[in-house]
Amino acid sequence: MIRRRRPRGLRPLLAAGAASAAAVVAVTGLTGSVRAEPQLDVAEARRQVEILYHQAEQATERYNDARISLREAEGNFDRTQRRAASQQAEVAALQSSVGAFAAAAYRNGGLDRTLQLVFADDPDAFLERATSLDALTTREAASLRKVVEARRELVADQTAAAQHLAAVEAQRKTLAVEKSQVEQKLRAAREVLNRLTARQQSQFDRASRSDPRTMLASLPIPETARAAKAVDFAIKQLGDRYVWAAAGPDAWDCSGLTMMAWREAGVSLPHSSRLQFQTGRKVSRAELIPGDLVYFYSPISHVAIYVGNGLMVDAPNPRDRVKIRPVTDMPWAGATRP
Score class of each variant (00 low, 15 high):
residue 149 E to Q: 14
residue 265 A to C: 02
residue 243 V to P: 04
residue 224 T to F: 04
residue 11 R to F: 03
residue 138 T to I: 15
residue 77 F to G: 09
residue 131 T to K: 08
residue 189 A to V: 12
residue 288 L to P: 01
residue 196 L to Y: 01
residue 269 L to F: 06
residue 80 T to Y: 10
residue 184 Q to C: 02
residue 235 I to C: 01
residue 65 D to R: 06
residue 230 A to L: 04
residue 139 R to L: 10
residue 1 M to E: 14
residue 284 S to H: 06
residue 54 H to S: 10
residue 291 G to W: 06
residue 142 A to K: 13
residue 147 V to I: 11
residue 30 L to H: 09
residue 59 A to T: 05
residue 12 P to L: 00
residue 150 A to T: 02
residue 140 E to T: 01
residue 304 A to P: 00
residue 221 I to E: 13
residue 66 A to M: 04
residue 309 N to C: 05
residue 46 R to N: 12
residue 276 Q to K: 09
residue 87 Q to F: 07
residue 167 A to N: 11
residue 324 I to D: 02
residue 99 G to T: 13
residue 176 A to L: 08
residue 165 L to G: 12
residue 70 L to V: 01
residue 227 A to E: 02
residue 259 M to H: 05
residue 133 L to R: 09
residue 153 E to W: 07
residue 269 L to Y: 03
residue 306 Y to Q: 00
residue 18 A to G: 11
residue 101 F to G: 04
residue 118 V to P: 14
residue 225 A to D: 13
residue 124 D to K: 13
residue 287 E to P: 07
residue 67 R to P: 01
residue 143 S to C: 11
residue 105 A to I: 05
residue 35 R to K: 15
residue 227 A to H: 00
residue 230 A to E: 04
residue 313 V to Y: 05
residue 89 A to R: 08
residue 21 A to Q: 00
residue 299 P to T: 07
residue 270 P to W: 08
residue 23 A to I: 03
residue 120 A to G: 13
residue 51 I to E: 14
residue 242 Y to Q: 07
residue 133 L to M: 15
residue 274 R to Y: 11
residue 296 F to H: 06
residue 222 P to T: 01
residue 79 R to K: 14
residue 121 D to I: 06
residue 309 N to T: 05
residue 229 K to W: 03
residue 311 L to C: 02
residue 54 H to E: 13
residue 118 V to Y: 14
residue 96 S to A: 10
residue 229 K to M: 08
residue 205 D to I: 12
residue 25 V to Y: 06
residue 280 G to N: 04
residue 327 V to W: 07
residue 171 Q to S: 14
residue 49 V to H: 07
residue 127 L to S: 15
residue 131 T to P: 02
residue 324 I to C: 05
residue 135 A to F: 01
residue 110 G to T: 11
residue 240 D to F: 10
residue 90 E to S: 10
residue 273 S to Q: 00
residue 1 M to W: 13
residue 41 D to S: 05
residue 253 D to A: 08
